[in-house]
Amino acid sequence: MEVLGLRDDVTDRAAMVAQNTLQLIAFSIGEQTYGVEITTVREIRAWNGATPLPNTREYVRGVINLRGTIVPIFDLRARFGDGQTSPTKNHVVVVMSVGDKWVGILVDAVSDILTVSRDDIHAVPEGNSIDTELLNGIVTHDGRMVGLIDLYSIVSGAKLDG
């Protein structure tokens, strides 16, 4: 009985730990590191060009063929308003599922898989609406800031107005 009790205790704790932590895929855009929850990531692939779409905002880089389905690619740097990335073969597309759709985001490089505690997620400082709109929160890793990307807001509003 005691043994069993102890085990229950252990699994509970493991579950608690699991519940309370978050695994992130961290990637970089310039000097800055960002992350998305690992469970949303479907695939990471090297940039190999995309077919541009007409009449879209500059951060929609176009569409690629992902094993027979057409997936749109969003340029994260452009989404943050820093101008379009000039992609090379070393740039990386992170394909993720957002709701029932698959989208890819173009980033400079994928750096690491991070495990962070949910308790360590800080709110995004108020001030610039772009920050609060595009980030869900901020965590610290190795003394550096990692912005948690809000996937839905990245994807929305892709069409040109009017």
Partner: peptide
């Protein structure tokens, strides 16, 4: 014929996409 709307949205003037022999997407 492949759908654009499946993962994106309707694009004006475009009826859909297709995948060419070289693996690239053509609209």
């Amino acid at each position: 014929i492949k759908s654009l709307e499946e993962n994106y949205e309707r694009v004006e003037g475009i009826a859909g996409g297709t995948i060419l022999g070289d693996g690239n997407v053509a609209l």
